[in-house]
Every structure is written in C-alpha cells, then in structure tokens.
Nucleic acid binder design. Sequence first.
DNA 1: GATCTTTGATTGAATGACCAAACAATTTGG
DNA 2: CCAAATTGTTTGGTCATTCAATCAAAGATC
Lengths: 208, 208
Amino acid sequence: MPDQTKERIVDAAYRTLVRRGYHETAMKDIAAEAGVAPGLAHYYFETKEDLLVAAIEHGCEPLIKVWEAAGVSLSGPMPEDADPMMFARMGFELAKEELKTYGGLFLLTFDMFGVGLHNPKIASAVRTFIEERRAFVARITRAVIAGMAEPPLASADAIAAAIWGSLHGIYLQKVMNPEFDAEAAIDALSEMTMAFATRPRSTSREEG
Amino acid sequence: MPDQTKERIVDAAYRTLVRRGYHETAMKDIAAEAGVAPGLAHYYFETKEDLLVAAIEHGCEPLIKVWEAAGVSLSGPMPEDADPMMFARMGFELAKEELKTYGGLFLLTFDMFGVGLHNPKIASAVRTFIEERRAFVARITRAVIAGMAEPPLASADAIAAAIWGSLHGIYLQKVMNPEFDAEAAIDALSEMTMAFATRPRSTSREEG
DNA sequence: GATCTTTGATTGAATGACCAAACAATTTGG
DNA sequence: CCAAATTGTTTGGTCATTCAATCAAAGATC
C-alpha cells in the first residue's frame, strides 16, 4: 500500500498539474485527485517542487520506453551497426508521434521551464532535462557528421543544440496553439537537416 | 505627470518582473520599485496580467527600433530591392546580438509563455507574439525560396516555424544556462539553413 | 483676484481569499 | 506493541483587488 500510495499521488499530481498548471494547483487539489488527505502529499514529498519533478519524470516514463523499444537509450551509446541517418529520420518521426500522443507532457514540461526561470531547485532539474536530451541528439549528430562528404563548420554540439531547440520551439508553438501544424514544421526541419547531411562536396562556400 | 507616472510603473514592472518573475512579484513590489503607492498600479492597469503584457511590449520597443533602423519592420513587407539571403544572414546576426544585449527580455518572454499556458488572457498575448514573429521569418523564407535552384518540399510557413522555433529553443537553452554557447548554436542553424537555401539542383531525393 | 467646484491622480489601509508547510492525533499492519 | 502511514486541522503568511479618503490643479463663478 505505501508504494502504491506514493505512485497514486505522483500520478494524481501529473494529471492535476497538466490540467491546471503548477501555480494554479494547490497541494490539496493533488491530494483530492489522489483520494488522500491533504497532509499526505507532504509526507512523501518535502516540497511542492519535488512533486513537480517527480510528476515530470513519471510522465516521461512511457516516452522513454518507446525509445528503448526502438533500440535507443537516452543515456547509452548508439548501436554501432545502425545507420545514423536512419536514426535521425526515426527521431523526427518519433518526435511527431510523441507530440500527438503525449501533448499533456509537453504542456507540463513548458510549465516546468517557466517555474525554473526563478526557482533554483526546478532550474537545476530543467538544466539536467535539457542537457540529457541535447546530448542524445548530439550523439546522433556526431554519427551523421562522420558520414558526411564535407564536415560542417559548426560542431556537433552546436548543431545538436539548434536541432533540439527547433524541436522544442515547434513544441512550444503547438502547445500555445493547437491549430498549429507541428508535423509540417518537423517535416521541414527534417528536410533541412537531411539535405544538409547529404549535401555533396562543394568547391567553395562562405562562412556565417 | 500622469503619463510619466504610467510609464514609470511599466518600467518598474519590467525591471521587477525580469528580476523576480511573474508569480514571485507582488503588485506592491512593482509599486515600490516605481516609488508610488500600492493602489496606483491598479489605477492604471486593471489586472496584473495587463501589466505583464504592457511590460513585455515596453521591453520589446528598443529591439523593434533596432530592426527598423536596419530597414525592416516586423509587420511590413520586405524591401523589394534587397537580397533575401542577405536579410536572412542579417537576421541571424541580429538574433545573436539581441540575445547578448537584451537577455532580460528573453527571460521575461519565457516567463510569459509559462504563465500563458494556463491563463487565457496571457495565452492570447503569447499567440499574437509568436504569430507576428513567425510571419516575419516566413516573409524572409518565401523570398529566399524564390531564389532557390530547386524549391523545397516543405512550405515556407513550415520552414519558418522550424527556424523561428530553433531560435527560441536556443534562447531557452541560453536562458536556462548562461554557460550555454548560444552564438555557436545560432551559427550552426545559420550554416544549415544557408546550405539548404544554396544547395544545387539534385537528380533525385527521397521524402521525410 | 478670491472662492467654490470638479476632475483626475494618488494614497494607504482594508478585504477576502488562498496556500504551503507543520503538526498533533489517529489508524493500520506487521 | 511499535513504527509507519494517514488524517484533518492549524499556522503563519501571502497577495490581488477594492475602496474611502486626500491632494493638486484647472476651470468656473462672482
């Protein structure tokens, strides 16, 4: 029962935070959603911030499982035998799928970003969150660069930051406006990066 | 004096909101920063939300002036005689400059995004904010596409969404971590888009 | 020119509500 | 019987917004 209860609280927190947002949900709202007394949330989580972090991690679980089912782990290395271009393409496809299926998680993520702007504890969680995912993109980027006819001027890390940033910028637009065609934007990003990765060796180019 | 006072309150709001964030600043903090009585802020602005919107607009003013000094208006058309590629390149350069000079504004912008996630009034302001800027990028994109050897599969709007998104994703990384090398990321984005825009006509390519 | 009047600007103190966290008391399960 | 789990209340504080009262200045009246 104890572990079950904690899990129930985290799940209730996730649902409530997605629905109402961090600053608009009270601890007792979460407790009510979980069907427990107001005080119990503080028994398992010292602060509301801790509960937010737990809720985000909880929300990310299914998403990470999808990636691992596809043979990729967020923190582990890329499989050596795989085609990096295929991985990149798959990444964009998965991104589209995730946005469609786990829209609430992205909402909560941006909420966390907002809170993290002026809250050290959340800020630290946000930095970890970003770095982990950006490093993942960087691993794929490095592998793709290794196969390019002419290596780019920019570092793999810089390119990864631009690509990860673009995905999240697209997520933002989608979260702020459900009418927004995020799939088309991700396809455009995919087309640009793929064209960049496969461009032929050129005689001369200028610098940015 | 009356107009001056309102301006003073908006300016105080901008500074206080940047420093402490929307949810962590009280109306009376803003009033204190402006050197007026607590009630006066509500005399000029019905709600705290209105003051946030006014503060953002106030913060954007110098930035818009820089663009107009460079011959571009956010909402107007592009000058017909200009080289679109040059405009694009200049856009990326200005983006780097802005991020260095007006870091606080970006912080406040992301704060507004966070608040807008669950606040209809702010959400509407955010949508306008995004659409205005994305449309601006789209105008440049359209002009660039017109000069491409082989037009892209993606629409100009989709490409603009990916590029604007990337810039803001990069801003986000910078805001969350000052160590982050945003200039390198913007250079990488610039390199990718420029390479894409100038790529030669190819015999055959696959779809994303 | 002196006094009254109006209007808008400004003040500072309520109001009314909310909430995170702490806590003492009770229950449960081993 | 004990320790962990759970309850529901209290605490101590916050804050947006309202409001009655003051103030300053600009007309209006005589």
